[in-house]
Design a binder for these strands. Structure first.
Lengths: 166, 166
DNA sequence: TATTGTTATACTCTATAACTATA
DNA sequence: TATAGTTATAGAGTATAACAATA
Protein backbone atom coordinates (compact mmCIF):
# COMPACT_ATOMS: atom_id res chain seq x y z
CA UNK A 1 0.00 0.00 0.00
CA UNK A 2 2.70 2.51 0.72
CA UNK A 3 3.69 2.30 -2.96
CA UNK A 4 0.92 4.59 -4.10
CA UNK A 5 1.30 8.17 -2.86
CA UNK A 6 3.78 8.55 -0.04
CA UNK A 7 2.89 11.24 2.48
CA UNK A 8 4.79 14.43 1.67
CA UNK A 9 6.79 14.51 4.90
CA UNK A 10 7.76 10.85 5.24
CA UNK A 11 11.29 9.48 5.05
CA UNK A 12 12.56 8.85 1.53
CA UNK A 13 14.97 6.13 0.57
CA UNK A 14 16.26 8.24 -2.31
CA UNK A 15 17.17 10.98 0.12
CA UNK A 16 19.22 8.48 2.10
CA UNK A 17 20.95 7.36 -1.07
CA UNK A 18 21.66 10.97 -2.00
CA UNK A 19 23.08 11.71 1.44
CA UNK A 20 25.32 8.66 1.25
CA UNK A 21 26.68 9.81 -2.09
CA UNK A 22 27.17 13.35 -0.89
CA UNK A 23 28.92 12.21 2.23
CA UNK A 24 31.37 10.17 0.19
CA UNK A 25 31.84 13.07 -2.16
CA UNK A 26 32.58 15.34 0.76
CA UNK A 27 35.41 13.16 2.05
CA UNK A 28 36.79 12.68 -1.43
CA UNK A 29 36.90 16.43 -1.93
CA UNK A 30 38.37 17.18 1.48
CA UNK A 31 41.17 14.67 1.31
CA UNK A 32 41.42 13.89 -2.38
CA UNK A 33 43.54 15.04 -5.25
CA UNK A 34 41.32 17.80 -6.57
CA UNK A 35 41.92 20.13 -3.66
CA UNK A 36 45.52 18.98 -3.55
CA UNK A 37 45.91 20.01 -7.17
CA UNK A 38 44.15 23.28 -6.54
CA UNK A 39 46.49 24.01 -3.65
CA UNK A 40 49.48 23.18 -5.83
CA UNK A 41 48.03 25.62 -8.34
CA UNK A 42 48.62 28.38 -5.83
CA UNK A 43 52.34 27.91 -6.31
CA UNK A 44 52.88 27.51 -2.57
CA UNK A 45 53.46 24.30 -0.72
CA UNK A 46 50.58 22.01 0.02
CA UNK A 47 49.29 23.61 3.14
CA UNK A 48 45.55 23.18 2.74
CA UNK A 49 44.59 24.72 6.06
CA UNK A 50 46.50 27.95 5.43
CA UNK A 51 45.01 28.21 1.95
CA UNK A 52 41.60 27.97 3.55
CA UNK A 53 42.35 31.08 5.60
CA UNK A 54 43.61 32.87 2.52
CA UNK A 55 40.41 32.03 0.67
CA UNK A 56 38.30 33.24 3.58
CA UNK A 57 40.14 36.56 3.50
CA UNK A 58 39.89 36.80 -0.26
CA UNK A 59 36.18 36.10 -0.46
CA UNK A 60 35.53 38.51 2.42
CA UNK A 61 37.11 41.23 0.33
CA UNK A 62 38.36 43.08 3.38
CA UNK A 63 40.77 42.54 6.28
CA UNK A 64 39.33 40.33 8.99
CA UNK A 65 40.05 39.82 12.65
CA UNK A 66 41.16 36.42 13.89
CA UNK A 67 37.78 35.84 15.47
CA UNK A 68 35.92 36.72 12.30
CA UNK A 69 37.99 34.27 10.28
CA UNK A 70 37.39 31.58 12.87
CA UNK A 71 33.63 32.19 12.75
CA UNK A 72 33.48 32.06 8.99
CA UNK A 73 35.51 28.87 8.84
CA UNK A 74 33.70 27.42 11.83
CA UNK A 75 36.86 26.56 13.71
CA UNK A 76 38.31 27.81 17.00
CA UNK A 77 40.59 30.80 17.42
CA UNK A 78 43.92 29.18 18.18
CA UNK A 79 43.78 27.29 14.93
CA UNK A 80 43.54 30.54 12.99
CA UNK A 81 46.31 32.13 14.99
CA UNK A 82 48.64 29.37 13.87
CA UNK A 83 47.61 29.42 10.22
CA UNK A 84 48.04 33.18 10.08
CA UNK A 85 51.49 32.84 11.60
CA UNK A 86 52.36 30.37 8.85
CA UNK A 87 51.00 32.74 6.21
CA UNK A 88 52.99 35.62 7.67
CA UNK A 89 56.21 33.63 7.56
CA UNK A 90 55.71 33.15 3.84
CA UNK A 91 54.64 36.74 3.23
CA UNK A 92 51.17 35.74 2.14
CA UNK A 93 49.40 37.78 4.79
CA UNK A 94 50.22 40.37 7.38
CA UNK A 95 48.70 41.87 10.49
CA UNK A 96 47.65 45.49 10.72
CA UNK A 97 46.42 47.18 13.88
CA UNK A 98 42.67 47.41 14.32
CA UNK A 99 41.99 51.14 14.68
CA UNK A 100 38.95 50.47 16.86
CA UNK A 101 40.38 47.95 19.30
CA UNK A 102 43.98 47.71 20.44
CA UNK A 103 43.47 44.08 21.50
CA UNK A 104 42.75 42.97 17.96
CA UNK A 105 44.68 42.96 14.74
CA UNK A 106 43.30 42.82 11.23
CA UNK A 107 44.61 40.16 8.89
CA UNK A 108 45.09 41.11 5.28
CA UNK A 109 46.47 39.06 2.39
CA UNK A 110 49.57 40.41 0.66
CA UNK A 111 49.53 40.79 -3.11
CA UNK A 112 51.16 37.36 -3.37
CA UNK A 113 48.58 35.90 -1.01
CA UNK A 114 45.66 37.36 -2.93
CA UNK A 115 47.02 36.01 -6.20
CA UNK A 116 47.53 32.57 -4.72
CA UNK A 117 43.95 32.52 -3.45
CA UNK A 118 42.71 33.60 -6.88
CA UNK A 119 44.61 30.82 -8.61
CA UNK A 120 43.17 28.31 -6.18
CA UNK A 121 39.61 29.51 -6.70
CA UNK A 122 39.98 29.74 -10.45
CA UNK A 123 41.22 26.17 -10.62
CA UNK A 124 38.34 24.81 -8.58
CA UNK A 125 35.74 26.89 -10.33
CA UNK A 126 37.05 25.79 -13.71
CA UNK A 127 36.99 22.17 -12.70
CA UNK A 128 33.38 22.28 -11.54
CA UNK A 129 32.35 24.32 -14.54
CA UNK A 130 33.78 21.56 -16.73
CA UNK A 131 32.00 18.93 -14.70
CA UNK A 132 28.68 20.62 -15.43
CA UNK A 133 29.47 21.62 -18.99
CA UNK A 134 27.38 18.90 -20.60
CA UNK A 135 24.40 19.30 -18.35
CA UNK A 136 21.23 20.84 -19.76
CA UNK A 137 21.15 24.51 -18.92
CA UNK A 138 17.97 24.18 -16.91
CA UNK A 139 19.41 21.44 -14.71
CA UNK A 140 22.55 23.42 -14.05
CA UNK A 141 20.58 26.47 -13.01
CA UNK A 142 18.31 24.37 -10.81
CA UNK A 143 21.22 22.63 -9.17
CA UNK A 144 23.03 25.83 -8.29
CA UNK A 145 19.86 27.44 -7.02
CA UNK A 146 18.66 24.49 -4.95
CA UNK A 147 22.11 23.63 -3.66
CA UNK A 148 22.61 27.15 -2.38
CA UNK A 149 19.25 27.17 -0.68
CA UNK A 150 19.86 23.74 0.78
CA UNK A 151 23.23 24.76 2.18
CA UNK A 152 21.75 27.88 3.72
CA UNK A 153 18.79 26.03 5.23
CA UNK A 154 20.94 23.30 6.69
CA UNK A 155 23.55 25.72 7.98
CA UNK A 156 20.82 27.66 9.77
CA UNK A 157 19.42 24.51 11.34
CA UNK A 158 22.88 23.39 12.35
CA UNK A 159 23.48 26.71 14.07
CA UNK A 160 20.23 26.20 15.98
CA UNK A 161 21.50 22.78 17.07
CA UNK A 162 24.59 24.47 18.42
CA UNK A 163 22.79 27.22 20.31
CA UNK A 164 19.81 26.56 22.54
CA UNK A 165 19.21 22.99 21.56
CA UNK A 166 17.35 21.06 18.86
CA UNK B 1 27.68 43.61 -22.39
CA UNK B 2 28.26 40.43 -20.43
CA UNK B 3 25.04 41.11 -18.54
CA UNK B 4 22.85 39.93 -21.38
CA UNK B 5 23.24 36.25 -22.22
CA UNK B 6 26.38 34.65 -20.80
CA UNK B 7 27.85 31.88 -22.90
CA UNK B 8 26.61 28.50 -21.64
CA UNK B 9 30.03 27.16 -20.66
CA UNK B 10 31.59 30.17 -19.00
CA UNK B 11 32.49 30.48 -15.35
CA UNK B 12 29.59 31.49 -13.14
CA UNK B 13 29.90 33.55 -10.00
CA UNK B 14 26.83 31.88 -8.55
CA UNK B 15 28.55 28.52 -8.89
CA UNK B 16 31.47 29.85 -6.88
CA UNK B 17 29.10 31.11 -4.22
CA UNK B 18 27.34 27.75 -4.13
CA UNK B 19 30.63 25.90 -3.81
CA UNK B 20 31.71 28.14 -0.96
CA UNK B 21 28.49 27.43 0.89
CA UNK B 22 28.71 23.72 0.25
CA UNK B 23 32.28 23.61 1.38
CA UNK B 24 31.37 25.28 4.65
CA UNK B 25 28.43 22.98 5.03
CA UNK B 26 30.69 20.01 4.51
CA UNK B 27 33.01 20.96 7.34
CA UNK B 28 30.11 21.81 9.60
CA UNK B 29 28.63 18.38 8.99
CA UNK B 30 31.89 16.51 9.35
CA UNK B 31 32.92 18.08 12.61
CA UNK B 32 29.69 19.53 13.95
CA UNK B 33 27.06 18.47 16.40
CA UNK B 34 24.65 16.83 14.02
CA UNK B 35 26.85 13.83 13.33
CA UNK B 36 27.91 13.86 16.94
CA UNK B 37 24.29 13.61 17.97
CA UNK B 38 23.65 10.89 15.41
CA UNK B 39 26.59 8.91 16.75
CA UNK B 40 25.32 9.31 20.29
CA UNK B 41 21.99 8.02 18.99
CA UNK B 42 23.71 4.69 18.30
CA UNK B 43 24.07 4.19 22.03
CA UNK B 44 27.81 3.61 21.66
CA UNK B 45 30.55 6.04 22.52
CA UNK B 46 31.39 8.84 20.15
CA UNK B 47 33.65 6.97 17.80
CA UNK B 48 32.69 8.51 14.48
CA UNK B 49 35.21 6.60 12.41
CA UNK B 50 34.06 3.21 13.63
CA UNK B 51 30.44 4.16 13.03
CA UNK B 52 31.42 4.98 9.47
CA UNK B 53 32.61 1.43 8.96
CA UNK B 54 29.43 0.08 10.49
CA UNK B 55 27.35 2.20 8.13
CA UNK B 56 29.37 1.04 5.14
CA UNK B 57 28.69 -2.57 6.12
CA UNK B 58 25.03 -1.89 6.78
CA UNK B 59 24.39 -0.13 3.49
CA UNK B 60 26.31 -2.83 1.61
CA UNK B 61 23.86 -5.36 2.99
CA UNK B 62 26.45 -8.12 2.99
CA UNK B 63 29.77 -8.95 4.67
CA UNK B 64 32.67 -7.08 3.14
CA UNK B 65 36.40 -7.62 3.03
CA UNK B 66 38.73 -5.05 4.55
CA UNK B 67 39.77 -3.88 1.11
CA UNK B 68 36.19 -3.48 -0.04
CA UNK B 69 35.35 -1.33 2.97
CA UNK B 70 38.42 0.79 2.37
CA UNK B 71 37.47 1.30 -1.28
CA UNK B 72 33.92 2.32 -0.46
CA UNK B 73 35.06 4.72 2.23
CA UNK B 74 37.95 5.93 0.12
CA UNK B 75 40.52 5.42 2.82
CA UNK B 76 43.53 3.11 3.09
CA UNK B 77 43.49 -0.42 4.42
CA UNK B 78 45.31 -0.02 7.74
CA UNK B 79 42.72 2.50 8.85
CA UNK B 80 39.94 -0.04 8.36
CA UNK B 81 41.90 -2.76 10.10
CA UNK B 82 42.03 -0.59 13.20
CA UNK B 83 38.38 0.45 13.13
CA UNK B 84 37.30 -3.15 12.72
CA UNK B 85 39.45 -4.15 15.66
CA UNK B 86 37.68 -1.50 17.72
CA UNK B 87 34.29 -2.75 16.57
CA UNK B 88 35.21 -6.33 17.40
CA UNK B 89 36.24 -5.37 20.93
CA UNK B 90 32.79 -3.95 21.48
CA UNK B 91 31.00 -6.85 19.80
CA UNK B 92 29.63 -4.67 17.04
CA UNK B 93 31.24 -6.65 14.23
CA UNK B 94 33.10 -9.89 13.78
CA UNK B 95 35.34 -11.54 11.23
CA UNK B 96 34.36 -14.66 9.37
CA UNK B 97 36.63 -16.60 7.03
CA UNK B 98 36.32 -15.83 3.33
CA UNK B 99 35.50 -19.18 1.74
CA UNK B 100 37.19 -18.15 -1.50
CA UNK B 101 40.44 -16.73 -0.19
CA UNK B 102 42.24 -17.77 2.97
CA UNK B 103 44.15 -14.49 3.06
CA UNK B 104 41.00 -12.46 3.52
CA UNK B 105 38.30 -12.33 6.13
CA UNK B 106 34.80 -11.03 5.74
CA UNK B 107 33.58 -8.41 8.18
CA UNK B 108 30.00 -8.63 9.31
CA UNK B 109 28.09 -6.47 11.79
CA UNK B 110 26.64 -8.23 14.83
CA UNK B 111 22.97 -7.73 15.63
CA UNK B 112 23.97 -4.95 18.03
CA UNK B 113 26.14 -3.37 15.34
CA UNK B 114 23.40 -3.47 12.75
CA UNK B 115 20.95 -1.88 15.14
CA UNK B 116 23.40 0.86 16.05
CA UNK B 117 23.95 1.65 12.36
CA UNK B 118 20.20 1.76 11.81
CA UNK B 119 19.69 4.19 14.66
CA UNK B 120 22.43 6.39 13.26
CA UNK B 121 20.95 6.41 9.77
CA UNK B 122 17.41 6.93 11.02
CA UNK B 123 18.47 9.95 13.03
CA UNK B 124 20.25 11.59 10.11
CA UNK B 125 17.54 10.77 7.63
CA UNK B 126 14.91 12.19 9.96
CA UNK B 127 16.88 15.37 10.46
CA UNK B 128 17.28 16.01 6.77
CA UNK B 129 13.70 15.10 6.08
CA UNK B 130 12.67 17.74 8.60
CA UNK B 131 15.01 20.25 7.02
CA UNK B 132 13.25 19.78 3.68
CA UNK B 133 9.75 19.44 5.10
CA UNK B 134 8.63 22.92 4.15
CA UNK B 135 10.08 22.89 0.68
CA UNK B 136 7.74 22.65 -2.28
CA UNK B 137 7.48 19.06 -3.39
CA UNK B 138 8.90 19.80 -6.82
CA UNK B 139 12.00 21.47 -5.41
CA UNK B 140 12.64 18.59 -3.06
CA UNK B 141 12.41 16.09 -5.86
CA UNK B 142 14.65 18.17 -8.08
CA UNK B 143 17.22 18.62 -5.35
CA UNK B 144 17.48 14.92 -4.58
CA UNK B 145 17.65 14.04 -8.25
CA UNK B 146 20.21 16.66 -9.23
CA UNK B 147 22.29 16.20 -6.12
CA UNK B 148 22.58 12.48 -6.75
CA UNK B 149 23.57 13.02 -10.34
CA UNK B 150 26.03 15.71 -9.38
CA UNK B 151 27.67 13.50 -6.76
CA UNK B 152 27.96 10.66 -9.25
CA UNK B 153 29.37 12.87 -11.98
CA UNK B 154 31.92 14.48 -9.72
CA UNK B 155 32.92 11.19 -8.14
CA UNK B 156 33.55 9.74 -11.59
CA UNK B 157 35.67 12.73 -12.59
CA UNK B 158 37.56 12.55 -9.33
CA UNK B 159 38.35 8.91 -9.94
CA UNK B 160 39.70 9.86 -13.37
CA UNK B 161 41.93 12.43 -11.67
CA UNK B 162 43.30 9.67 -9.49
CA UNK B 163 43.93 7.19 -12.30
CA UNK B 164 45.51 8.19 -15.58
CA UNK B 165 45.87 11.90 -15.06
CA UNK B 166 43.83 14.89 -16.36
C1' DT C 1 55.83 -12.58 -7.78
C1' DA C 2 51.28 -10.29 -6.71
C1' DT C 3 47.78 -9.61 -3.39
C1' DT C 4 45.39 -9.28 1.36
C1' DG C 5 45.82 -7.77 5.49
C1' DT C 6 48.42 -6.24 9.84
C1' DT C 7 51.72 -3.65 12.76
C1' DA C 8 54.21 0.37 13.75
C1' DT C 9 54.81 5.02 13.05
C1' DA C 10 53.98 9.73 11.61
C1' DC C 11 51.40 13.58 9.84
C1' DT C 12 47.40 16.99 9.25
C1' DC C 13 43.81 19.35 11.08
C1' DT C 14 41.50 20.90 14.90
C1' DA C 15 40.18 21.23 19.90
C1' DT C 16 40.84 22.48 24.96
C1' DA C 17 43.15 24.80 28.75
C1' DA C 18 45.83 28.30 30.65
C1' DC C 19 47.52 32.76 30.06
C1' DT C 20 48.27 37.96 28.53
C1' DA C 21 46.72 42.35 27.19
C1' DT C 22 43.22 45.53 26.48
C1' DA C 23 38.24 47.02 27.13
C1' DT D 1 34.94 41.42 34.79
C1' DA D 2 34.59 40.39 29.85
C1' DT D 3 36.71 40.02 25.40
C1' DA D 4 40.62 39.21 21.65
C1' DG D 5 44.26 36.79 20.89
C1' DT D 6 48.32 33.64 21.90
C1' DT D 7 50.92 29.65 23.65
C1' DA D 8 51.16 24.95 24.82
C1' DT D 9 49.27 20.60 24.67
C1' DA D 10 46.27 16.86 23.22
C1' DG D 11 43.29 14.19 20.31
C1' DA D 12 40.84 12.27 16.17
C1' DG D 13 41.37 10.69 11.73
C1' DT D 14 44.06 9.10 8.28
C1' DA D 15 48.47 8.13 5.65
C1' DT D 16 52.99 5.66 4.65
C1' DA D 17 56.35 1.98 5.25
C1' DA D 18 57.68 -2.49 6.43
C1' DC D 19 56.13 -6.93 7.07
C1' DA D 20 53.42 -11.68 7.05
C1' DA D 21 50.60 -14.99 4.95
C1' DT D 22 48.40 -16.83 1.10
C1' DA D 23 47.55 -16.94 -4.01
Amino acid sequence: MPAEAPEPGGPRPDLLAALTRISRLGSALTRGRLVERAVEETGLGRDRAAVGVLVALRTAGKPLRIGEIADRMQVVGPHITRQVQALEKRDLAHRIPDPHDARARLIEPTAAGAEAADRYLAFLLGWFTDALAEWPRQDRDDLVRLLSRFADDVTTRLAALGDGEE
